[in-house]
């Protein structure tokens, strides 16, 4: 059953939240003594958020292109749903070995996407650390994965999904199961 999605947060509110998230991330990196980490976003919403964060972090982030991960080859539901027809190449245009990485996604829900992303990252190299930054964290975790920094933790029902639309403008929508373009 498909119901129309409704606007959850306007572009202005998302931008304000990104400002706060960038500040929190910078403070977190300071506290951990991490300098200028490269940023990696998970397709597609995570890449948009990664870009927005890199812009706001300026020199606090590495002066390198944003990494882009498409985790389609690492999903745990491949045998159920088959190949994602919209898979794009992952791009990690820098060395990972020994570096501190910031991994970015839009919504942290079950944790399965982040699990897949970590597996993929480690096939590119052995980072010294991975910091997880997400725009939204919500209930419904199925794996022991938590964000280091998050923009917001809204209360949403089990059947509801938060969807980021973008890249311009970046807006958050609330929809019911089945609306979601990328299953978490």
């Amino acid at each position: 059953m498909k119901t129309p999605t409704k606007l959850f947060m306007t572009a202005t509110a998302v931008h304000a939240m990104l400002d706060g998230l960038a500040r929190e991330l910078a403070a977190h990196l300071d506290a951990r003594g991490i300098e200028a980490p490269p940023i990696v976003g998970i397709h597609s919403g995570g890449v948009w958020i990664a870009r927005a964060l890199a812009e706001r972090l300026g020199e606090r982030a590495a002066n390198e292109a944003i990494g882009e991960l498409d985790i389609s080859f690492y999903r745990d539901d491949f045998t159920r749903i088959g190949m994602n027809p919209q898979v794009r190449p992952s791009k990690l245009p820098f060395e990972l070995d020994g570096r501190d990485i910031v991994l970015v996604d839009d919504v942290l829900h079950t944790g399965r996407t982040v699990r897949a992303a970590l597996n993929e990252l480690f096939d590119y190299g052995r980072p010294r650390s991975v910091t997880l930054a997400v725009l939204i964290t919500r209930a419904g975790r199925q794996l022991p994965i938590q964000a280091d920094v998050a923009g917001l933790e809204p209360r949403v029902g089990d059947d509801e999904h938060i969807i980021l639309r973008g890249p311009q403008p970046l807006e958050l929508y609330l929809g019911e199961r089945g609306d979601k373009a990328r299953a978490e």
Binding site: D70, S72, F73, Y74, F78, M83, P85, V87, R88, P89, S90, K91, N119, E120, F122, D123, Y124, G125
Partner: peptide
């Protein structure tokens, strides 16, 4: 075209440290 697009993604795998995906 879908085959070619997927191949494009897989071509990247061949250039990585671990040339393998768990699919």
């Amino acid at each position: 075209t879908e085959i070619l697009d997927h191949a494009e993604s897989f071509a990247g795998v061949n250039e990585r440290m671990v040339k393998k995906v768990p699919l």
